[in-house]
């Protein structure tokens, strides 16, 4: 579903944020991307989502290069950034309907999907209000709903649990598992290692732009906890 081939990204000024990254995520995988602040997680995620331009390497989504046919790739992915800045001038339902129009979801399907996910995240009553009036958590919920309504094959989330209340976090985890069972893949970054350990079947640890560990969760952590493995890698830097 997702194949990252020799991906590198160097920012103006010479800082290499990501260095020759290679990894593959298959349908049904829940992949946890772990790393300290500034390790290159968000850069990688933004490149996969087609938000960040890059020159070196390639990213293939369902076999299609994001560089060569970005529209086709974006049609099957959904992306939620770490700080979901949504259009303040729209209402919640206005934003969801906008996304529905862009992804050309039929009216009946979008009404059903909005109903399902808005109820799951307890946001239905707020959908008529302006996004400007939303709290951070409500914006996060709305961004998640907008990502789910077009049934993405690849869901990319950057720190999805930040700002969510415990109930919404649990709802999201359940939905993530449900999505993977239906054949989608999930790529998400997190600092909550316990969540990654429990939820993910694959883990990748990035450090200073380089992938230092990658594979099935059990293989990466071995007999230790993910936290111990992560700390060990950081300290032996």
């Amino acid at each position: 579903m997702l194949s990252i081939v020799n991906f590198s990204k160097t920012y103006k000024g010479g800082k290499k944020a990501v260095d020759t990254l290679n990894l593959d995520i298959n349908s049904g995988d829940i992949f946890g991307f772990i790393g300290h602040n500034g390790a290159g997680k968000t850069t990688t995620i933004r490149a996969i989502a087609g938000v960040l331009d890059f020159e070196e390497g390639d990213i293939l989504i369902d076999g299609v290069s994001i560089k060569e046919d970005p529209v086709k790739c974006k049609r099957v992915i959904a992306y939620i950034p770490d700080n979901p800045d949504l259009y303040d001038h729209l209402t919640g339902i206005g934003y969801l309907n906008f996304i529905g129009d862009i992804y050309e979801i039929s009216r009946v399907d979008r009404e059903q999907a909005i109903k399902k996910y808005a109820e799951a995240f307890e946001l239905t009553a707020n959908l008529g209000d302006g996004i400007a009036s939303y709290s951070h958590g409500m914006k996060q919920k709305l961004a998640i709903i907008s990502a789910l309504i077009h049934s993405p094959k690849l869901l990319i989330l950057d720190e999805p649990f930040v700002g969510l209340d415990p109930k919404a976090s649990l709802t999201l985890k359940n939905i993530m598992e449900e999505l993977c069972k239906s054949g989608s893949a999930i790529f998400f970054s997190t600092h909550v290692l316990l969540v990654a350990e429990k939820l993910c079947n694959k883990i990748g640890i990035i450090q200073d732009g380089r992938l230092v560990a990658f594979g099935p969760t059990q293989e990466v952590k071995g007999d230790s906890s993910l936290e111990d493995v992560f700390m060990e890698l950081i300290e032996t830097k």
Binding site: N97, G100, D101, S106, R107, E111, A118, L127, G128, S133
Partner: peptide, 21 residues
Amino acid sequence: TGRYRANYKLERLKSSSPLKA
């Protein structure tokens, strides 16, 4: 804070083409 009612009920939505949206 804008106007905050929290009383929305799901209703029939209007769909448009991507360009119109």
